[in-house]
Design a protein around this nucleic acid. Sequence first.
RNA 1: GCCGGGAUGGCGGAACUGGCAGACGCAGCGGACUCAAAAUCCGCCGACCCUUGCGGUCAUGGGGGUUCGACCCCCCCUCCCGGCACCA
Length: 882
Amino acid sequence: MPTNQHSEPTEKAVTGDSQAQEMRYNPADIEARWQQRWESQPELYAAEPATSARPKYYVLEMLPYPSGQLHMGHVRNYAIGDALARYMWMQGYNVLHPMGWDAFGLPAENAALKNNTPPRQWTLNNIAAMKRQMNRLGLSYDWRNEVTTCLPEYYRWNQWFFLRMYERGLAYRKKSKVNWCPQCATVLANEQVVNGCCWRHEEQIVEQRDLEQWFLRITNYAQELLDDLSKLDGWPEKVRTMQRNWIGRSEGAEIEFELEDAAAAPEDEARTKGTSVLPAREDVKGSGKKIVVFTTRVDTIYGATSLQLAPEHPLVKEMAAATPSLASAVAGLLEQQRAAREAGDVGGIEKHGVFTGHYAINPFNGERLPVWVGNYILLDYGTGAIMSVPAHDERDYEFAKKYGLEMRIVVLPRHDGEAADSGAREAMLPFTEENSLLINSGEFSSMGCEEAQHKMAAHAEQHGFGKAKVVFRLKDWGISRQRYWGTPIPMLYCETCGIVPVPESELPVLLPDNIEITQQGGSPLGRVPEFANAVCPKCGGRARRETDTMDTFVDSSWYFYRYTDARNSEAPFATDTVAYWFPIDQYIGGVEHAILHLIYSRFWTKVMRDLGVVRNDEPVARLFTQGMVIRNGAKMSKSKGNVVSPDEMIARYGADATRMYSLFAAPPDRDLDWQEDGVAGVSRFLGRVYRFAAKYGERAKGAGAASGELTTESQALLRKLHQTIRKITEDFAGRWHFNTCIAAIMELVNTLTAAESQIAEGRVPDAVLADILRSLTLLLAPFAPFLACEIWEQLGETSGLLRAPWPKFDEALAREDQIEIPVQIMGKLRAVVRVSADAGEETVRDAALNDEKVTAAIAGREIVRIVLVPRKLVNIVVKQSV
RNA sequence: GCCGGGAUGGCGGAACUGGCAGACGCAGCGGACUCAAAAUCCGCCGACCCUUGCGGUCAUGGGGGUUCGACCCCCCCUCCCGGCACCA
């Protein structure tokens, strides 16, 4: 136990002076004592049941991954949440403030490989260590509702939800191209790929593999996830924008182009180059094969001069099979695309393409468009095929220029278009403005673009070759992971019945304990015959268990519901209990989860609502994303060597000072620059408070209620006190600028110590002193709970500080009777006059004009105007002397 | 390229709705206490100028504008951080 082994050598010298010893602020002693008391009362921070007469308040910080060590980002996150929770308790709310562990995941397996510790043991040890750190910080969690996602009591409900989703077609299995991280040796969701690299391994390029995977149909909810963003007005605009971009809704149309029957094609000139459109002809025959194109600009379809297919388009494969030269060209294009994707720069790819030799018929006018393959066409967006309109699309323009493809202008600006000659028109290309008019577009000519978009989609639908269509960028959520340390997917593959879900009565499918972890050869569970071999519940025949586990983001998608009813063994939670607590009133965490966790949990909530187990549409009413903790200009990281450990700070300055500094050094939404000297400064401040209370607490202890006229000194102190109460109360309700709240408390204490001689002389009655000391302690409680409790007790208070009522702001006491009004002349400060706070305009004006410095500065010039802002300032405008 | 956020003393930051720029803290300087140190307490602390005063001028990334008055609003520009990006 690394306790007081390294105590200060200086302490010996002080031991002689018992008075000084007593007055010294020793956070280690105080905090150890209170920590012990709090831990012996597990009901201390317990929320009341739904029958509580108090209004409910659910405050939540994002649950950590149990790495074994808290870092400063955690401390900051929890300091914010804890201050809020304590404040809301003091405001009389029934507060739910829980904590848990996002305990599945790869690091446990890596640790197992490295030091031969079983993942479960490694994880549980880490949890114990981090819980100790949290308790050392004095965080007010209700541990009765602790959730640990790697325990069967929790993950069985992951399985249960999965089965419900499977029943409803929301969970399905398909073979598809998936992201594969060789270092993780598993598949990643789209959301876990950052710049073409693994989110955990920044340098590791993600490969594409074809695998059978389980998916959750988040796309079913794409529209609702998008629409409901507008309801989340308690969320940062930034996060909402990020989610909007991620969902990526595009409105457009799908149009079918039939491939021309090449064998029966009439002889045309320039057939082999594929650079120009072939005219419509009566004798052209269709092959029956269709190319479906998605476009947001169907209005420009008369300007289409080619089709562009993705290299992996199925039709391209077919064509390439028949034409070896095409096959090798396409392979080249595909390789370029893959390289760009892996470099994380799909946008920067240099466009290349190859003509397939085929033509497809534009259903609007019968023209035949050359069919090309382009390395910039992505198979997984839209239909993997586009119509190319060089005159009205930047990318198509660039491509057409390069390969000499035909261009056709079919859109002109509303006003100057008609007059322009062809040279001027070409100079505008590519012209992409949608507030424009169509030309050369058959029956649609002279329509506006938007009108044409609707009419053309309707036309296509009427004639059976297309329809209006909405496309999302968001893809279904692939949740299969070829790893051990996760929730087993409760599915079986029967030799005769095929895919069979595990019956609910057999849940949980337990994760076996004794397992050899390796990073090769697929899912580790596949090598555990007792696990993998099963009996089909349908036919009793031999079946193989699914050996992949779930993405750990499944665990964190609904954990906060479990907190409300964490020991329920019959259901994931009681619906009524959830209905009482949800939505979460305030969620606090890092912005790095803006897309991943926060979009998955919104999805999960909507699924649970449709399953009838919750009644809310959204999980989180208000979201707060705190800034990063940085040091020397960079995010703390081992590789940069700028990490500061919370343990070290706590050992040196105490938990109160460490927490308080993390709130004091910057507003919570901004990045925080960690400066150890600053922590020392906060610690010094707490020492001043401690000593002041120690010195005058005894006097305050026995004091009765204040009575009679207040002395001037008392008034001044109470004024400052109530100004501070107002400031902090307002900030908790709104801005959350805890840095200035703490500064305000410091000012109050400075005022108090400056008045110390008057207090010592007895010019401030004990009752007033007691009032001030009690209020100060209450104001301090959300930020420095250990010290606040210590002082609270010294003041003779026996009720718990946690539920003590927040001090009430008194307008009359806060009011200044004299205020200073700055006097400007021509906008420059020339004097300050003191007037009574309720002085009328006349009085203020007279005071300003009669001020010596003001008359001197005016120097007899003519006064043009006097601007008078009540209680704020006077500005005198004079005629400029020449 | 597009969308956010930001730039204020030596440093972190304050100024909430357009009204005394630099609260609060750190660092620094000077002093008290002490044999000494630590701890603590007190004072000074944006830059420049002079006639050293209850003085003046300049100053919130740069340039312009609106206003009696701009860190704050408008226009243009520079740099930093974050997100998105052939999304058809």
